[in-house]
Amino acid sequence: MLFIEIISWLFIVAGALLGIAGGIGIHRFPDFYSRLHAVGITDTLCAAMFLVGLCMQTGVSIASLKLMLIFIFLFFSSPTATHALANAALLGGLKPELDEEYHGHCFDRHPD
């Protein structure tokens, strides 16, 4: 039992550190579009770590099933919300700060 406790603590601590890293990320990155990626960390791996750690704490029960349900729901809804936000910003005319050196690099590389 102690083994499972320690593993779940490791998961929760990792989730907490990832959350703070994402929080620092939205202050480090220069423009809106790159901040989306920092929020992506907290939406994906941080939430996953927390919920898996909590699942280990509750054991096999209705509570852990509900935690899995939150996990599944977040993995459907958070990319949708992020995409809708990026789409609204792009259609709203917000220009991203692109890297000058490589700009346009990828347009003509597709093996279409």
Binding site: T80, H83, N87, L91
Partner: peptide, 18 residues
């Protein structure tokens, strides 16, 4: 939300669950 395919498909999935 013009032509937002993702939102439309995800809303179809989410409505029964909610």
């Amino acid at each position: 939300m013009k032509h937002n395919l993702i939102l439309r498909v995800i809303a179809k999935y989410l409505f029964p669950v909610i």
